[in-house]
Computed example of a mutant assay.
Amino acid sequence: MPSLLIHTLLLCYSSLSRCSESKEYTLDVFAPHEVKFHSLDYRNVLHWKQHANSTNDQQYFVQWKVYGEKQWTNAKECHGISRLLCDLSKETSDPREWYYARVHAAHSGTQSPWVLSARFNPKWETSVSPPTMKLHVTEKGIVVRLKPPRSPHRRPNGSWISVSRLQRMSFTIHLMQSDVEEETFEMEGCAKQLLISDLSPGTTYCLTAESRLHLLDRRSTRSPRACITTL
């Protein structure tokens, strides 16, 4: 009789163990993966990938917190969403702080485990866009006006804050004639314009510009080519 009882208990334990493993597998099978921040011009967007076994009606929930804090905060704009990204620019706007984010999936009343991002700091990890360039020709040469890329943040009066206000940056201007690069010019991010003089009259020059963040020496792609003919 005792051996029968032990055998019965072992069968029950084995059954419960299989059920537990099956439930855990079911939860993990639709959990998001590759949860990571992508930042451009301080627009900090959390991205993740959908599991291959996920369903189209699956929903995602995002939370974030400052590094060192215990409490997680719900991302209000990313509660029960179907898209695979969440803009956390407002929540992660302090360049002095490090942040974490996490996301889980829900389907038919079942939730996957939370999946955590790597630690993120916008100042150290953001990339930068090329500046907006405008050209004007005078008798002295070509006047180049550059406008730094803007961040998603605003001042109290509603005006946009440029990336150059958030960290030190500069620009490199490339001067070309007949598709041959002739000269490059450096311009500080706080400068308004640059005069390129000593050019051949009646000649068409083309210019591109790129931004540079001095922290970690990050550079943007080049801006679209703009051409102008000297007087």
Rank of each mutant, 00 (worst) to 15 (best):
N44V: 04
R168I: 11
W124N: 10
S3L: 07
L85T: 11
R218D: 09
L146H: 02
A101K: 04
Y67T: 01
V163N: 06
L215A: 08
A52Y: 10
L16K: 11
D198F: 00
S178A: 13
N121M: 09
K140Y: 06
L84V: 08
R219A: 06
E186V: 06
S223I: 06
P32H: 12
V103I: 08
F37P: 04
I173F: 08
E181Y: 01
Q177V: 05
G141S: 04
T229G: 00
T126G: 08
S197R: 00
R102N: 12
P113S: 12
L231E: 05
R154V: 10
A101V: 02
P32N: 13
Q58A: 07
Q50C: 13
H79L: 06
H79R: 04
T229Q: 05
L135P: 02
N44T: 07
P201E: 09
S164K: 11
R18S: 09
D28N: 15
I161Q: 14
T138R: 12
M187R: 01
Q63C: 11
W114P: 09
E139G: 13
W64C: 03
D198Y: 02
E181A: 11
Y42E: 11
S39N: 13
V29K: 05
N56G: 07
Y99N: 05
V180S: 09
F61V: 14
E182P: 00
E181K: 06
M187P: 05
A101D: 01
S223W: 04
K65T: 12
T92Y: 02
T132C: 00
E77C: 07
W48S: 07
Y25P: 00
M176H: 12
Y67V: 00
H107M: 07
K123N: 13
M133A: 08
V143C: 07
R96Q: 08
V128C: 01
P148K: 06
D41V: 07
T172R: 14
Y13K: 10
S54L: 03
K90D: 06
M187C: 08
H153T: 05
Q63M: 13
S82N: 13
F30I: 15
T73G: 01
Y100G: 03
A105R: 03
A101T: 01
K36T: 09
L199P: 11
K36R: 14
G68L: 06
R43Q: 15
H47E: 10
L195I: 05
A226M: 12
K76N: 12
S108F: 04
L135T: 01
H51P: 02
E210W: 02
L11F: 02
V143N: 10
D179M: 03
S197H: 04
T126H: 07
R219H: 10
P95K: 01
L199S: 07
S89G: 01
T8C: 06
F61H: 15
S200A: 14
D198S: 13
F30G: 09
P131S: 04
I6T: 11
N74L: 12
M133G: 02
N44E: 06
S197F: 00
K140V: 00
W64L: 01
S164P: 02
H136K: 14
P149Q: 04
A106V: 12
R225N: 00
E69M: 12
R119S: 04
I161P: 09
D41S: 11
H47Y: 15
S223Q: 06
S20G: 14
A101S: 11
T8W: 11
H214Y: 13
L116A: 02
F30H: 13
V143H: 03
W160K: 10
D217T: 07
